[in-house]
Design a protein around this nucleic acid. Structure first.
Length: 119
DNA sequence: TTGTTGACTCCCG
DNA sequence: CCGGGAGCCAACA
């Protein structure tokens, strides 16, 4: 179901990720109906403003790590924010999330249709 | 419309 | 586990 504003759909879904829980880029893309759109999700998050209310830190890559990026400071911030939510990281690999699989969150179906349930 | 750019992923060695 | 290469998608120039 192609809709306009792919970015807005990404944000709407990411906003629903509970604190301390995680989704992968590919997971978000798949939930939006674009299973191969992981890169587009990353792109959407990259254009978020600094003071956004979107919990972008809860989106990580399929390897269970905080993705590196041009601004590695942002990656450090992401690690910090996640740590504040109780997410633990490997001592020898600061970007790698411990118990990553256990923290993964799957959106309820109602979360995926709330924009489209006009009847 | 074509080419480029990423906060990605999977597949090989 | 690490590194290289190809495929994918949306936004931008």
């Amino acid at each position: 179901m192609p809709m306009t504003n792919f970015n807005a759909r990404v944000y709407a879904l990411v906003r629903q990720i509970p604190p301390g829980r995680l989704m992968t880029y590919s997971g978000v893309a798949a939930a939006l109906g674009v299973p191969r759109g992981a890169r587009a999700v990353g792109w959407a998050l990259a254009m978020l403003p600094i003071g956004t209310d979107v919990p972008w830190q809860r989106v990580v890559n399929a390897r269970g790590e905080v993705s590196e990026r041009a601004n590695h400071l942002n990656a450090d911030l992401q690690v910090d924010l996640l740590a504040a939510e109780g997410v633990r990281f490997a001592p020898d690999a600061p970007r790698r999330i411990l118990a990553f699989r256990r923290l993964l969150w799957e959106p309820p179906l109602t979360a995926l249709v709330d924009q489209d349930n006009k009847g």
